[in-house]
Design a protein around this nucleic acid. Structure first.
Lengths: 145, 145
DNA sequence: TCCATTTATATCGTGCGCGATGTAGTCGTG
DNA sequence: CACGACTACATCGCGCACGATATAAATGGA
């Protein structure tokens, strides 16, 4: 009759909490991003490029914490949409560098309003959100180690 | 020169934190689940069925917070793997009820060890984890409203 | 220089995840 | 009972996400 120390019910698992919350947030972004003709991962990629334009596919993959085989087709779609250009490196022709176009840079003006909607939708105040981002990021980095 | 109240850098966004953490946790599960021949969403579904066997596709979709059009093929794969059976309801033939097989029920014995590995990997103590699950779940439910 | 190794990206196959749409079964109201 | 509305799943198309594999370029000795 000892207490069960580790939950095995999905509702109590950190994995399911993150999994379902992540999808819920993505769904919340979807209508706004659809108006811009973007998917959620495409928007995330642009967000990193707004801070550091001209990243290589590998550099972007590190920042987005995902494999390059996911990013290659994603970058091709962003290129087809006219948001970025892709060009092989000159001194190292294995690398592909991604640069924002005028159009891709211009999308940045929509970011504050999108962020505002999401922050408002969470029902959290900014201090709570900041703490949550910190905890979740710490957990992610621990899992990745 | 006022401070920017809302972050637009991906690293500071709750969406990216959840997105990258969710994928990191899924990757952490992957090797253990591969040994069991399961994917992560399949494992989550089994977890719900261990608590409530005989759920309908719709009931499972509510609990997993995802659409039935995602679950239908997922359930077919679990059926093909021999973990569940699918059967139309008798009084309402539109519904499909999912029942664990002996094999599907037996997978439950692996859950505690899997949970233990994940909990250990987070680097969080149980109280922190519980608080984090609570916060993330609250955020998810607010976004879903 | 030559060649094995490593590195950066690309390709392929599988399984989600969801919006849009289809279909069969059920319900409600006259 | 008829019939339109609704409901529960299923199907389809597209875009991730990743493991496995391929390919070409760079690197590092012997």
């Amino acid at each position: 009759m000892t207490a069960e120390p580790l939950p095995t019910k999905a509702d109590d698992l950190i994995c399911f909490a993150l999994y379902s919350a992540s999808h819920a947030v993505t769904r919340a972004y979807a209508p706004m991003l659809r108006d811009l003709g973007l998917t959620y991962p495409q928007y995330i990629a642009l967000t990193f490029l707004w801070v550091e334009d001209g990243l290589s596919v590998g550099g972007l993959s590190e920042r987005m914490k995902m494999e390059t085989n996911t990013l290659t087709p994603l970058m091709k779609r962003l290129e087809a949409l006219g948001h970025v250009t892709r060009a092989r490196g000159k001194q190292d022709e294995r690398q592909v560098f991604v640069h924002l176009t005028e159009r891709g840079r211009a999308m940045q003006v929509h970011a504050p309003e999108i962020t505002r909607c999401i922050v408002e939708g969470t029902g959290f105040d900014l201090a709570e959100l900041e703490a949550l981002v910190h905890s979740v990021t710490r957990l992610r980095d621990a899992m990745t180690r």
